[in-house]
Computed example of a mutant assay.
Amino acid sequence: MPIVLTLTEGVLPEDKEAIAIERIVQSFLRHHGLTGNSVMTPNVTSHVNVLPKGKTYAGGTPVEGAWIETRTPSFALAERAVQIAFFGEATEILHELSGGMLPKDRIWSEGLHAVDGTWNLGGTARSNAELGEAAAAG
């Protein structure tokens, strides 16, 4: 379940990027009741894209900001309370790690749901039901 963090260069100190990812992933796991789950924890993956100033936009105009994108099975981030809590906390994490310099209105997020059966764990494509079974075993 990838979490992609895209940043305009300089909105977070470089030494805070890994901290941001760790805290956002832990937030995602906690809000889904999966903290410490031996199957799901290593499968919540992430990467950071840092783009040069002048290469990120809002409304067609260059802007410095941050974007959080999740790609999950349809049962993840399905409850409104979880959506509000997770994306709200992720926004707070980035705002805090920027030293308050990255305004919250320059942090955007979205959640994408994948087609059932397309999750590859351990070299095997898994359905939502199979993922649920694997998570329950973890």
Rank of each mutant, 00 (worst) to 15 (best):
L112C: 08
V48R: 03
E17D: 07
D116S: 02
T70V: 06
E96F: 02
G54A: 08
I24H: 03
A114S: 10
G117L: 00
E64C: 09
A18C: 06
R80V: 14
A135V: 07
E92H: 11
A136C: 06
V63D: 15
L112H: 15
A114F: 03
G88W: 14
T61H: 14
E92D: 15
T8G: 04
G59F: 10
G99N: 12
R106W: 11
H31W: 06
E22P: 07
K55T: 13
T45L: 13
P42H: 00
G138H: 05
T56R: 11
I19E: 15
S74W: 10
Q26A: 13
L29Q: 06
E9S: 15
L5W: 01
G33Y: 02
T124K: 15
S98V: 00
I3H: 02
F75V: 01
R71I: 03
T91E: 12
G54H: 05
L94D: 07
A125T: 01
H31C: 11
F86Y: 15
I3V: 11
I21P: 00
L121H: 04
A125F: 14
K104E: 12
V25E: 09
A136Y: 15
N128E: 08
S98R: 01
E22S: 14
L12H: 02
A134N: 02
A81P: 12
T72V: 13
G100R: 05
H95F: 12
A114L: 06
P103K: 15
A66T: 09
V11E: 08
G132Q: 13
M40N: 05
K55G: 08
G138S: 07
R106G: 08
H47P: 00
T61M: 13
I84M: 13
G99E: 10
E96T: 06
L121T: 00
S38R: 15
E14K: 14
V115T: 06
R30L: 09
E79N: 13
K16M: 07
E92Q: 13
L94M: 09
G54M: 07
H95W: 11
E92Y: 08
G100W: 00
T91A: 14
H32G: 06
D15P: 11
E130G: 01
V11K: 08
A135I: 10
A85F: 09
K104V: 07
G59E: 11
H31S: 08
A129W: 05
G132S: 14
H113A: 05
G88D: 09
L131V: 00
R126H: 12
L29K: 01
S127A: 02
Q83H: 10
T118I: 00
L29F: 01
A18T: 14
P13G: 11
L94Q: 03
A81C: 12
T8R: 04
V48H: 02
H31Q: 04
R106K: 10
I19T: 15
E96I: 00
L7Y: 14
P2D: 07
T56N: 14
H32E: 03
R23L: 15
K16C: 09
T118P: 13
G122F: 01
E96V: 01
R23Y: 07
S27F: 01
L94C: 11
H113Q: 04
Q83D: 07
L7M: 10
L131N: 04
